[in-house]
Write a protein that binds this DNA or RNA. Structure first.
Lengths: 246, 246
DNA sequence: CGAAGAATTGAGGATCATCAACGATCGTGG
DNA sequence: CCACGATCGTTGATGATCCTCAATTCTTCG
């Protein structure tokens, strides 16, 4: 009887609630009182975990929901003509899909980099709820605003920074994001292949590989496959910020 | 008596209302009924025109309001270390300052490129009003979402396109924005110097100049100082989209 | 265990930045 | 209204950075 299985699975998935989620202090309901959080929790749909390489949604598919990452990680990819542009990596607690509100379609595909679970938040219900919960509305504005700010930083990186600076910035940014989530900021695993890093940073894979090797020789980081250890954070920051003067 | 003068000026400025603004169909109140628009209109503060080079606000100054451009144009500039990054140009009906919501400070300065008038919209009042006017709320979400989408397009441009493609895209984008505002999409005046274009597109001024010359020779556009005529839009589109194959 | 994908390494070359000099345009005050 | 200085724009020569192509090694997974 598949129904039984389905129900078991559903019930299992429903065990997860914002109230008990370790990410709630970083996620959208961050500013909500217990009672409000329950309202918010009620509109959320749990989804079966995505396997590595699976799409949360495809480019140009109709926009209905935004998603909060619960575990794992994803990448956003926009395809135009024959080439892809990777515009974002998403980590737990981050909100995916906000750029689809305006056009009613997702402007890029979002794909799991590893086994990943997300909370689906139907946008019409989120919008409606944001009417009665000012804190939720504020948080939503803030999330979008923050993404705008991050985008501007990225533009700066792409238009002014050297390959070395880009990679140093990338690791510093990742480190900071892991730190905020309670993981070690100095030792972590990259869920994405080199090619994705290169695409994201506007660099060829080979360049990424070479510079990683150089950073290793300089004692800034130790990389072994996807495992990264940051050995000299100050040094990395220095590389990321150094001006034209070499 | 300065008060008399001040009152005269205020009264003059107050002659402008959303209801009579030719931009209202593009601007934030776009979806509002007459009655709602009056509510919206009531929270707006008119400002004395900015002169060329004047700052609407400076980087890191406290965030209080967003601004709708009424006439003229502005640029957003983020300074870090010793170099500037120009992250956006703003034209009439566009909304300035949305990226300051999250951090309570404006992440970049916004400066008039020519004589420019704006409507100031205090954000706390906008937020409060968005509670009772769902259409306004939706429009605000949409505005932010659209800016996110545009940013992603910009990232793509910065990380994958050649100098020629960047400039072609830039002119196509400008043309489209003028068209939507009821101006000629083929003949317009650039309000920004070459240096700003270069900074925005991640190119040296010299490169901008050279490629403009080349476009001119190829019969794609005619430029004379700040005046631009697009002679061959299809050709421009072709340049903007051509793949590696030259 | 083998095959397919991922990562590294090397050589060569294209694109665009930089430096430098010059020409044009703007706006301001005499 | 014109002249002058300052900003803006153009053009040329040179070279660095990073991409491309190609070959090899390492890793992962059926």
């Amino acid at each position: 009887m598949p129904d039984v299985l389905a129900q078991q699975r559903r019930s299992l998935l429903h065990e997860t609630h914002c109230q008990t989620c370790s990410l709630s202090s970083l996620c959208l309901p961050l500013a909500l009182e217990v009672q409000d959080m329950q309202q918010f929790d009620a509109i959320i749909r749990r989804r079966a975990p995505l396997k590595k390489g699976e799409a949360l949604f495809r480019q140009n598919s109709p926009f209905n929901s935004v998603y909060a990452v619960r575990s794992g990680s994803l990448k956003q990819v926009t395809t135009e003509g024959s080439e892809d542009q990777l515009t974002n990596f998403y980590l737990p607690s981050e909100l995916v899909g906000l750029d689809g509100i305006d056009s009613d379609r997702y402007p890029g595909a979002v794909i799991a980099l590893e086994t990943t679970t997300v909370c689906e938040i139907p946008f019409d219900r989120l919008d409606a709820l944001s009417e009665s919960l000012p804190e939720l509305r504020t948080q939503l504005y803030r999330s979008m605003s923050k993404e705008l700010r991050d985008d501007r930083r990225m533009m700066r990186l792409l238009s002014r920074k050297t390959a070395d600076q880009r990679l140093a910035s990338f690791f510093i940014g990742l480190s900071e994001r892991f730190r905020r989530r309670g993981y070690s900021p100095f030792s972590f695993r990259l869920s994405m292949p080199r090619a994705d890093i290169g695409n994201y940073l506007g660099l060829a894979v080979e360049t990424v590989s070479r510079i990683l090797g150089r950073f290793q020789n300089q004692g800034l980081i130790a990389v072994s496959g996807r495992e990264v250890n940051i050995l000299d954070m100050d040094g990395l920051v220095h590389v990321a910020e150094e001006e034209g003067a070499k």
